[in-house]
Amino acid sequence: MECMTRTASPSKVTLFIPCLVDALWPEVAEAMVRILRHLGLSLDCPADQTCCGQAAFNGGYRREARRAARRFIEIFEGAQCIVCPSGSCVHMVRRHYPGLFREAHPWRRRAEAVASRTYELTEFLVDVLNVKDLGARFSGRITYHDSCHLLRGLGVKEQPRSLLRHVTGADFVEMENADSCCGFGGTFSLKYPDISAAMVNAKVDHILSSGARTVVACDAGCLINMAGAMSRRGISVNALHIAQVLAGVDFQRTCPF
């Protein structure tokens, strides 16, 4: 893979904060900060970042997405190593940014350079830092939902699972159809809410039949969707970002629901 440059472990990490996390669920970013500092890394977080442009891109608005991409590249191209707690945002940067610019265009190379240095949190921990056990504790049964872009777009499947298996006290179980889409799909969930709701409710049923009290994922979008459906159905299963579990934060206080 073009991005998996397993050079010496980086000492400095630049944080790429997804807009959903920034505005709706800052606790996830805090948890990530806590994990990375715990690992002795020095952190940098560009203060003027806003959004990677994925929603525009997925809606077909390539021009607006390209504008967002240029801005992102300008902000992040000085970074050695960019880490983000979201599979779909990293997928956007790594898989789609270069294609927004023509082959020979100078921006193409800049986009590729940034793409090759951008990692999703769990792949960064496992593949780059070679860390699987963060010494975190948790109590209860947890299950994991594969977010589409992380699993099929970036091929990240085992990394979050092995991190979760190393959490002391967590009883990790697989749910049925863990890899099927939760129905979020960005603006899809707003344009076709009935279909989206049917999909997320099927996902919630699988979570329930797994017997887990907590569902974990690596994307705020999926989690907001699943948590929103469970909250409406009065189901008391927690939806947590993997960073929160790994950081061992008090999720009762920091879960958005």
């Binding site: 709706l24 669920w25 969930s189 707003l190 344009k191 076709y192 809410p193 009935d194 989206s196 709701a197 997320v200 409710n201 907001i224 969707n225 948590a227 929103g228 459906a229 909250s231 409406r232 958005p256 629901f257």
Partner: peptide, 9 residues
């Protein structure tokens, strides 16, 4: 549409 069947944070 979202909030017909789901809550939003």
């Amino acid at each position: 549409g979202w909030t017909r069947k789901r809550d939003f944070p």
